[in-house]
Design a protein around this nucleic acid. Structure first.
Lengths: 237, 237
DNA sequence: GAACTACTGTGCAGAACCGCACATAAACCG
DNA sequence: CGGTTTATGTGCGGTTCTGCACAGTAGTTC
């Protein structure tokens, strides 16, 4: 009999035993439609989502008018880290960027499960750490990189979660990076002229992954390496 | 008999009972000299530090040549959150910016104490959350603010940890914000001309705290509010 | 296939910041 | 107290990005 856990595309759930999964209670598979809000800033979190397909963005609206993405979550992770830390609310919003599916778990249930299973607790702690490192890298990238490099990093991060070609508009990219839309157009043209990507209407495809990585001059890779060390190397059970 | 915990200026330690403190084992008070490295990137963490006076910076050196500060830790917190998450290393360096003192706890001991005391565990989880929010705010600030506003935010964060006037050079500020040094000179002049600070050789003093806060247009305040909600409101024990 | 609605491309003046270079000034040291 | 070090102030050309404005083009709808 195959392990139930192999049914999960989510990298976190796939690390859990049937027992741990059952601790999560009635976990329901839900469809994620683009623009779905999975968390609203300052509202209590009722559910966390272990993403199976698609991805979501964590958005900071700190500075009055200008919002910006601070984190990206796909099948490698989960939304609702506040719950993992035992907290009821978060100051950020999380919304679905690219539709897909997820397993939804009640916040209370997750908390109880953490208390019961050290293995689950350990895994979630490590993911929280991995995500914190991703956000730190974003802080670093936002402070030190040019737009083209920030864009390259973003495209790579999305490719990791949604495959090498995906739908996205310049407008949307501009919102995530908090830059002007025409700036994105130019930056994409530049990346394309270097043969690193192919840009079509409403869509971008990675053409030369290695080249893109090199182009970010180290801004992409560290967080991803840490994720591997933290999660992939965590014992299956 | 007064509570032992009242002896601690560190906001986290001051929330702990004598029992919880004793779980931390031989905690040693150490002096923090400027430029002391409390954590080295990719090296195992042997100790965590609960800061009593002074403050430390978490530095990302992701992008090859350019390093940048991603987090600030003073008497409100602790270094070594990797340990709290059950991880042995961190990809960042943490160094003392402003000398002072701290209580040093063995990493192993902290881990064991977390397992034994739900109260301690809860507190550290909440601090980890507060710090993550701080880093997210930095990501947001780095992506959306002008230098002067980033500077204003940084000065406020330091003032919270080291008092309203503190020593710092333009060179140093430039390194933290990852900008040119003359840019800092100009930005400080601008803040001073608005009557928000007073800048002297090797030193800055906050003159109009409220004005400074207003000047950051919301970039300062959110993380601090969250800290209060997470830590100050956590039950004493 | 015409009208409409995204989405993408382009241009231009100006602000913000960089890179480099150098001038001034305060503190320190012998 | 004169020399050295450290810190701050200034200038200038160039690049990146903004803000604003508008043109083109691909899809969609009826």
């Amino acid at each position: 009999m195959p392990l139930l856990s192999l049914q999960y595309e989510n990298r976190l759930l796939s690390k859990l035993s049937e027992e741990d999964i059952s601790l999560l209670g009635p976990i329901r598979r839900v469809e994620l439609a683009p623009h779905n809000l999975l968390e609203r800033a300052h509202r209590p979190l009722d559910y966390v989502y272990f993403i199976e397909r698609g991805f979501a963005s964590v958005l900071s609206e700190a500075a009055a008018d200008s919002s910006i993405e601070v984190g990206l979550i796909g099948p490698e992770g989960m939304t609702g880290l506040a719950v993992v830390h035992g907290v009821e609310t978060t100051p950020f919003s999380t919304f679905v960027q690219s539709g897909g599916a997820a397993f939804r778990v009640e916040a209370e249930r997750l908390r109880a499960a953490q208390a019961q299973s050290p293995h689950l607790q350990g895994l979630l702690m490590r993911y929280a750490r991995a995500f914190a490192i991703q956000v730190s890298s974003t802080a670093s990238a936002n402070g030190t990189l040019l737009l083209e490099q920030r864009l390259a990093r973003w495209l790579l991060m999305v490719a990791d979660r949604a495959g090498d070609s995906f739908q996205v508009t310049h407008e949307f990219l501009a919102a995530m990076l908090s830059v002007r839309r025409p700036g994105v157009t130019r930056a994409l043209q530049d990346l394309e002229s270097r043969g690193l990507i192919r840009a079509m209407r409403g869509m971008v495809a990675i053409a030369d992954r290695q080249g893109l990585v090199a182009y970010t001059k180290g801004a992409y890779g560290l967080a991803e390496e840490e994720y591997r060390a933290l999660i992939n190397d965590y014992p299956q059970r």
